[in-house]
Structure formats: structure tokens, C-alpha cells
């Protein structure tokens, strides 16, 4: 089909149902919003959605996420400005849910802006513990701070280091490495978010991703966990990066929760072969979730 870019057509053999995948890319993205416990009780939030005529349902695997219909622009409501919710696609809520930081733990969100996942981590920690949100870009930090203030997250410190060079003077129990990527998973026909780039860009992005993942693994404490995630289908940015990290240090890939609907990570692609344990990572496709394409690997550093 001419309106599916070639970068995405090359995954014809990866998706379990290409026709369903293509059909999903032609549908507009549904609206998902994450309830924010720092500002309103769940009961009051649900009551308010219902009384405003918004149809909603909870999505499996992400307990605070609501798929809504009839909300007049998620960023244009009183609820948004009061911080009752944050617009966040279903699959983008999965990395914090899988990382599951305990209250009181020390957590780093290495590439944090614009802050939806940071605020979600804070909620999962019940606002207790050191939560550092890092981003290299100053203007993105401004947006990050605005979101965190609107959402009332009480335990977030914002740092501005280049992720690959993050200082190693303080270590963390958990690190979220939701790395910059080519963003192929955000593509929808007629949507404006995804920008097509060339092969050189892909290679450069993959190098940065590996450097970020290795840094995350260095600053996580022994016994701690790292969640590596992207919003792309490209194996070069997903399994290849995780496999490269596995080849450099002793690591354990953890299985992902059973209630998530995705495909296991792959072990070969265009002449490259990776260890079988890569099947413990997971690819999330739009035709399974009606959300963005995503990839997650949950990694434990031996204690």
C-alpha cells in the first residue's frame, strides 16, 4: 500500500497478522488517559467522567488507564488542568507498570521528558522514595516540569545530564531507559507524528540506545532492574540493542506479566541471530492493543 512507508512495510514477516496490522494503522488512535491518584480519588474521577457523558473502560495490564470516548480534547478540560489525569497511550504506560518500583525505592527515569511515565512511576511509588527525572534538552525539561507540577508529583528531582554520561556517584534500585528512537510505532496513516528517516539515522540512534542501556545497567544497583523500551518496530533498536548488552555483561532477562498482549521478541532478523532468551522481551503491535507499537525488555542485574 503506498501510504504505509517502506520502513514499516519491511516488517511484513514480523507481524503475526499483516492485514490486521495495516488495518490498525488506518484507524485513528483512541484516546487513553491515566488517572492521577495525587489529585483525585478513583471514585470521584470515574463519577466525573460518567456525569460528563464520557464513555470509559479500563484496559487490561495497565490498572490506572482509561480508554475514553466523548472527551472534548483531553488537554482542554478542567480535569486536565486540575491534574486529575494525564493523556497517555496504553502501550506507553506499560514500561512503568512492568518496572513496578516499590514505595521508598530509588528510581531514575533516564530520558524522562515530557514526564508522563515519570508521573506514573511516582504514583506507583505512592510518592515515596527518590525519583530522578533526567533529560538532556532544556526546553523539554520545561515541559516536563510543567506536567509534573500540574500532576502534583511530590517526590521528583529533575536533572539535566547527557544520559550516556550520567554520573555514577549515586546508584538506583530501578532505571527506566525509555530511549529516543525512530518512533515508527507512533505511525498512523494520516497522522503527523512519525517522521521518516534514513538508514544512517537508524544506525546512529541504535548506537545511542546501546550507550544509554549500558549506562542504565551501570548505575542500577546489583539485584536492581532496568526497563528498556522504545516505540519502534525496528529490531536494530530493540532486540539487537538488548542482545549487545547481554554480550557485554552478565544479565538476566525477566519474563513480562502474563496479562499483557504482545508477541515475544525475535531471535533472528536479516542475517543477525540473538540468544533465545530474547523471547522474554515483548513486542506490542497496534492490531493487538489499538495503541502505539512498543517494545519492552525487563532486565535484572545479578546481585
Amino acid at each position: 500500500m503506498p501510504d504505509i512507508p517502506p520502513q514499516i512495510s519491511r516488517y511484513r514477516d514480523l507481524a503475526d497478522d499483516w492485514d490486521a496490522f495495516e488495518a490498525a494503522l488506518r484507524n485513528p488512535l483512541p484516546t487513553d488517559i491515566r488517572w492521577n491518584p495525587f489529585k483525585v480519588t478513583r471514585e470521584r474521577f470515574e463519577e466525573r467522567l460518567t456525569s460528563d457523558g464520557v464513555r470509559w473502560r479500563l484496559l487490561e495490564g495497565s490498572p490506572d488507564l482509561y480508554r475514553v470516548e466523548g472527551l472534548p480534547g483531553p488537554g482542554l478540560t478542567w480535569g486536565y488542568h486540575l491534574g486529575w489525569y494525564h493523556p497517555q497511550g496504553y502501550t506507553s504506560t506499560l514500561p512503568p507498570v512492568i518496572l513496578a518500583p516499590e514505595p521508598g525505592s530509588d528510581v531514575l527515569d533516564l530520558c524522562a521528558a515530557p514526564g508522563g511515565k515519570t508521573a506514573q512511576l511516582s504514583a506507583l511509588m505512592l510518592g515515596h522514595g527518590v525519583l530522578v527525572a533526567n533529560d538532556i534538552n532544556h526546553s523539554r525539561i520545561t515541559a516536563l516540569a510543567a506536567n509534573l507540577e500540574r500532576l502534583g508529583t511530590p517526590n521528583v528531582l529533575i536533572s539535566q545530564y547527557r544520559g550516556e554520561n550520567y554520573p555514577e556517584r549515586f546508584t538506583f534500585d530501578h532505571v527506566l531507559a525509555d530511549v529516543p528512537c525512530t518512533g515508527e510505532g507512533t505511525f498512523r496513516v494520516g497522522g503527523g507524528r512519525y517522521r521518516q528517516e534514513g538508514t544512517k539515522h537508524l544506525q546512529a540512534v541504535a548506537r545511542t540506545q546501546l550507550a544509554l542501556l549500558l549506562k542504565a545497567l551501570k548505575i542500577v544497583r546489583p539485584g536492581g532492574t532496568v526497563l528498556y523500551s522504545t516505540c519502534t518496530y525496528a529490531p536494530e533498536e530493540n532486540e539487537a540493542v538488548v542482545a549487545a548488552a547481554l554480550s557485554k555483561m552478565e544479565l538476566e532477562l525477566l519474563p513480562l506479566p502474563d496479562d499483557l498482549t504482545g508477541q515475544p521478541g525475535i531471535t533472528s532478523w536479516e542475517g543477525m541471530d540473538w540468544p533465545d532468551e530474547l523471547t522474554r522481551t515483548m513486542r506490542f503491535w497496534p492490531h493487538h492493543t489499538d495503541s502505539w507499537g512498543f517494545y519492552c525488555a525487563h532486565i535484572r542485574k545479578p546481585g
Binding site: G104, D106, H128, G129, V130, V132, I141, A145, N155, V156, L157, I158, S159, Q160, Y161, P167, R169, F170
Partner: peptide, 16 residues
């Protein structure tokens, strides 16, 4: 938080 002092001493923060 339990390790807040250590984090504040070790890292440079833009906002907290």
C-alpha cells in the same frame, strides 16, 4: 525519602 540527602549531595538538579 530515605536516600534523599545522598542523592542531593551526589547529583546536580535543575528543579526538585
Amino acid at each position: 525519602a530515605p536516600h534523599l540527602d545522598e542523592a542531593l549531595a551526589a547529583l546536580r538538579f535543575e528543579r526538585t
